[in-house]
Design a protein around this nucleic acid. Structure first.
Length: 261
DNA sequence: ATGGTCGGCCTCCGA
């Protein structure tokens, strides 16, 4: 990690306590300045704060019992914290945390899965995406340097999954889902990985079921969206496949976005 | 080839 760069990682860890050794050893190795975690499946009081503080990270946690939950780990202090996506005071699912770290606003996003794709869970997903678009518009209008990372539960295009036909009716790939994701990009956001790489089949998630990892049947659903001021400083975006192959792996692997300081 | 995914947890639900 160079002094003139800031690295932001995103990782759906599928339970921070079940994954603690995997996550801490990866942080020690890669030393991201900021780590955005999703699906911590932990309330704040059960979050392993001390283990991360021992590695030099401050923890900003939005927890929930059993499900969901997001966290923002940062070597520098997190300020001006937002603990929910604006737009629905009745939404009590822990899926969003945003803060300013240095001169960058970062968000850890756990966008709803939405399956089954013909019922209330899908409606909730689409509504949540509308709220995200509205908030993203606000970040643009206020000319922020913002990096929105997380598990978007969106497969942006055919080349981001092993077999589009298998996913055509899935909430992660339905045309309406992809259109809504594009509508956020089209406000003026840059999707960091695809902006820098034409490589197809660069996955971030492999299902535990059906030997997904062993047969490389994956999907790319963990993304970074950058405002223009952040995109102007975009240096690299890398998917680190290594953690997915380790014992007791999460079904997602981390993605690292590098920004010029 | 007689198996087959995890994690949290009010033994099923969510992914």
């Amino acid at each position: 990690m160079a002094e003139d760069q800031i690295t932001v990682a995103t990782w759906n860890v599928n339970s921070v306590n079940a994954r603690l050794e995997n996550v801490t050893s990866w942080l020690e190795k890669r030393q991201p300045d900021i780590a955005l975690l999703q699906e911590i499946k932990s309330q704040e009081e059960n979050f392993p704060t001390l283990a991360f503080e021992a590695l030099g990270y401050k923890c900003t946690i939005v927890g929930q019992k059993s499900y969901n939950g997001v966290a923002l780990l940062s070597k520098r202090p997190a300020e001006d914290v937002l603990t929910a996506l604006p737009g629905d005071a009745d939404d009590d699912q822990a899926r969003y945390v945003e803060a300013r770290v240095g001169d960058i606003r970062v968000a850890s996003i756990y966008l709803p899965n939405g399956n089954p794709s013909n019922g209330p869970k899908y409606t909730y997903k689409l509504d949540w995406m509308d709220r995200l678009r509205d908030h993203a518009q606000h970040l643009l209008e206020t000319e922020q340097t913002a990096v929105l990372g997380g598990d978007y539960n969106v497969i942006p295009a055919d080349e981001d999954c092993y077999d589009p036909a298998d996913w055509s009716d899935d909430a992660l790939f339905k045309l309406e889902t992809r259109r809504k994701f594009r509508s956020i990009e089209n406000l003026g956001f840059t999707e960091a990985f695809r902006a820098l790489s034409d490589t197809p089949h660069a996955y971030t998630f492999w299902d535990y079921q059906g030997r997904g990892w062993e047969s490389d049947k994956g999907i790319r659903i963990d993304h970074f969206l950058l405002t223009p001021k952040a995109a102007d400083r975009l240096v690299a975006c890398e998917i680190d496949r290594e953690p997915r192959g380790l014992p007791k792996a999460s079904d997602h692997t981390p993605v690292i976005c590098t920004i010029a300081a």
